[in-house]
């Protein structure tokens, strides 16, 4: 799936490079504190729960549920309205903003708590975005 031009492009920093390297390699990389075991996002080289610097990077399952969203109805560069701006809750706990693909952008199709899976979507040679789609093998009527 090719993304239309104009979408704002993220620029990795030293603290987030591993995340963007991960999406490019087909992995959703989160971090976990070795002291308190909290999994967290967005990336930073210390634990936001307890301040410890001893943290590890791990590949998340890519499974998530739909936590909340809006459906934007106005035209903006890089997007074809109506499109949902969603927040998903990852199986490991953290939440992230994303878009839901392979799914009608309607309140009827986008049911809160429906099961989702990550859909890595290249923006260009360097940046791949972690979008999400309804979990495969789940019939539309049972996805909620």
């Amino acid at each position: 799936m090719a993304l239309p031009a104009g979408r704002p492009r993220p620029e990795p920093t030293p603290e987030t490079q591993h995340f963007w390297d991960g999406t490019k390699a087909g992995e959703l990389r989160l971090q976990r504190c070795q002291a308190c075991e909290k999994a967290y996002f967005p990336p930073r080289p210390f634990c936001p729960g307890c301040g410890a610097r001893e943290v590890s990077v791990f590949a998340a399952s890519g499974r998530a549920t739909l936590h909340s969203y809006v459906i934007h109805h106005r035209k903006v560069p890089g997007f074809e309205p109506p499109y949902a701006i969603a927040v998903v809750e990852l199986e490991e706990g953290p939440r992230m903003m994303t878009n839901i693909v392979d799914c009608p952008q309607t309140p009827e199709a986008l049911q809160l708590d429906m099961k989702l899976e990550v859909a890595f979507t290249p923006m260009d040679d360097e940046i791949t975005l972690p979008l999400f789609r309804p979990a495969q093998g789940t019939p539309a009527g049972e996805r909620a």
Binding site: P10, E11, F41, P42, F79
Partner: peptide, 14 residues
């Protein structure tokens, strides 16, 4: 684009 908002929210169309 290097801020956390720029990396982890802006690309999704807000």
């Amino acid at each position: 684009p290097q801020s956390l908002n720029g990396q982890f929210e802006a690309p999704f169309g807000p």
